[in-house]
């Protein structure tokens, strides 16, 4: 067991981890931040995406000890300071971009990273960026609409 410290959603945290403890396990079981989900065991589904030092990362695929000292942001840290939904979260609600909600944290984190890099993506760029996030419920239509809306562009199609 080793002691790790990092910043999660702006707060310093620390805990004991094994060498094999994944970041997602540390977040969910160590810190009780269960908004980050696990949907697969092959690094394919993206339900576990968080930001590490501003970059989207599949938290099922990095060891907790490897991000020691980093700044991690999870879905729990995405709302506005007053607790209201952030722009992208609000766009997901407005456009019905979620059904069961299981893929949603990963979708939001992944899309947020896209918009940070590329504030005005095309529809094709959004779809391409989300290749690593699987949703079984929405057929992606409303997710893509939500991301395009949040980017401040008019939505390309109904």
């Amino acid at each position: 067991m080793t002691q790790v410290s990092m910043t999660v959603n702006g707060k310093p945290v620390s805990g004991e981890v094994e060498g094999r403890t994944l970041l997602v396990q540390f977040l969910r079981e160590g810190l009780g931040l269960t908004g980050t989900h696990v949907g697969c065991d092959t690094s394919q589904c993206g339900a576990c995406v968080v930001h590490v030092d501003g970059k989207p990362v599949k938290s099922c695929t990095v060891f907790a000890q490897d991000v020691a000292g980093s700044s991690v942001k999870t879905i729990e840290g995405m709302a506005n300071a007053d607790g209201s939904l952030g722009t992208l979260q609000q766009a997901f609600q407005d456009h019905h971009g979620l059904q069961c909600g299981f893929c949603t944290p990963g979708m939001v984190m992944s899309s947020a990273a896209l918009l940070a890099d590329n504030p005005n993506p095309t529809e094709a760029e959004v779809r391409h960026h989300l290749e690593g996030n699987i949703c079984r419920c929405t057929g992606y239509h409303n997710i893509v609409k939500a991301v395009l809306t949040a980017s401040g562009q008019p939505v390309a199609a109904e």
């Binding site: 969910r28 908004g35 995405m78 609600q93 019905h96 909600g101």
Partner: peptide
């Protein structure tokens, strides 16, 4: 009507079976 369940799902506060300790 917008979905009331969305707020908890969008903020990571849904409670799925594996989320319970």
């Amino acid at each position: 009507s917008k979905r009331r369940e969305d707020v908890r799902f969008l903020t990571g506060r849904g409670v799925y079976t594996d989320d319970m300790a």
